[in-house]
Design a protein around this nucleic acid. Structure first.
Lengths: 136, 136
DNA sequence: CTAATTGCAAATTGTTTGCATATTC
DNA sequence: GAATATGCAAACAATTTGCAATTAG
């Protein structure tokens, strides 16, 4: 989705197009792939947009997430935002915290009483580099 | 595993058997199934053990989790402990926060560069009751 | 002009840390 | 008696809330 498409999307849902929202969406559609915490995004966007508040970032990302325009999951401590469109699992290193995409080949779960909105598959472990450093 | 077996397990790993640990392990092995937050467990055990500190609970649960004696996952905000031994997925209602077990029939993921320690499958959505109340 | 959005300060929540005291082995 | 564990107070990190000022439509 292009920046314009996303903005159109927001407009259609009655949301206002603010410069903060434009910046965030621009960033997302430029990057396309990768994981970010709110903090990281804040650090990056603050440079170009010094008046930006992290509270606004929380608002915007929360809204985009609700609309299904970004995907979010938790590393157990904080929310990670993920802009890549294809579903996949995530590997999180419990030592260095690094997150890597993992192919999700097959996932079958039993029936759910209710409306299912999203599925998070998180694999925790120790990445190769940390294994080398610490041993196991 | 019985309380005695778990305690033996701890001893073998050089951990000391304290009354706090006994209480926690007793509780876990009595309940066997169900999800708890540290806060809940603290509320329950505090009655029988008024001097118990929640910090100690964090310590104990963290240790038991490391040893693989309890399973833990995140609801995105806090750590949920799960004492049932068979692997399964979890459904979390984003409205009321209730957590239910979901059968995990099949899960195949791609290769991982590193040592895989555990997999969390969390399904988020809205439970039947909340759907009835709010509509959708 | 009106409703939505921003951004600040402050509050909350979950969890961790430092350290002195107490307890197990 | 030595090493480990507890529990308190305080620190921390991520996120949310209340609210007044600003901005988009």
């Amino acid at each position: 989705m292009t920046v314009e498409e996303i903005l159109k999307n927001l407009k259609e849902r009655g949301m206002k197009i603010t410069s903060q929202r434009i910046e965030v969406i621009k960033f997302i559609s430029e990057v396309k792939k990768g994981h970010f915490e709110v903090k990281d995004l804040f650090a990056i966007l603050s440079r170009k947009f010094p008046s930006l508040s992290i509270v606004t970032l929380y608002n915007i990302l929360h809204a985009l997430s609700e609309l299904g325009l970004v995907y979010s999951f938790s590393d157990g401590q904080k929310t990670i935002y993920d802009f890549s469109p294809e579903p996949h699992a995530h590997f999180i290193c419990s030592v260095c915290g690094r997150i890597e995409d993992v192919e999700l080949k097959e996932l079958v779960i039993g029936p759910i009483k209710g409306k299912r909105e999203k599925v998070e598959v998180v694999v925790k472990g120790i990445c190769e580099e940390c294994l080398k450093k610490v041993g196991s």
